[in-house]
């Protein structure tokens, strides 16, 4: 179970807004975290606490394939991203690096900036404590569950390689 404040953003938040290209000169998540969401909200990285959540509209993470984007969110210690929908490369990147995300259109639409959330990641149950509402997020397909339970893509690949040998 994770608890935190939800920070609300709109539709089509692209990877340039999550982490501007000028910061793609490092791969360190902690360093990237300082500039997370800077274009959309310059003070974002200063005001959030570990476990807080990003709540967004449609097509979150669209644009470039830069893994620096989910790394900056993870580096900041955010607990979860909830969105109406995710751009596909960003979605894959989150699964691959172990950054929790949930797709839940109604929860994302209803949320207001600053709402408090309790989320059960295993069950995909999102509780908006401020509004007293509960939502069931889309479950991950089995195939993706295997990657998640292996601890990300590289441990999954290692296991496969070991079987192959």
């Amino acid at each position: 179970m994770i608890h935190g404040t939800g920070y609300k953003f709109g539709d089509n938040v692209d990877t340039d807004q999550i982490i501007s290209a000028k910061y793609l000169v490092t791969t360190d998540p902690k360093e990237l975290a300082k500039y997370c969401m800077e274009s959309a909200d310059p003070d974002f990285s200063k005001k959030v606490k570990a476990g807080d959540m990003l709540v967004a509209g449609r097509n979150f993470g669209c644009g470039s394939s830069r893994e620096h984007a989910p790394l900056s969110i993870k580096g900041l210690g955010l607990g979860l991203v909830i969105a109406e929908s995710f751009a596909r490369i960003f979605f894959r990147n989150c699964i691959n690096i172990g950054m929790p995300i949930l797709e839940c259109p109604q929860a994302a639409r209803d949320a207001k900036d600053g709402d408090q959330f309790n989320v059960d990641l295993d069950q995909g149950i999102i509780k908006n404590v401020t509004q007293g509402k509960s939502y069931q997020a889309q479950p991950f397909p089995d195939f993706m569950q295997q990657i998640i339970s292996a601890g990300g893509l590289m441990p999954y690949v290692k296991k496969r390689l070991a079987v192959g040998n």
Partner: peptide, 12 residues
């Protein structure tokens, strides 16, 4: 794809 996906392709 992202870099971790690509790393998996580089390996396998």
């Amino acid at each position: 794809v992202g870099s971790t996906d690509l790393a998996a392709v580089m390996a396998t």
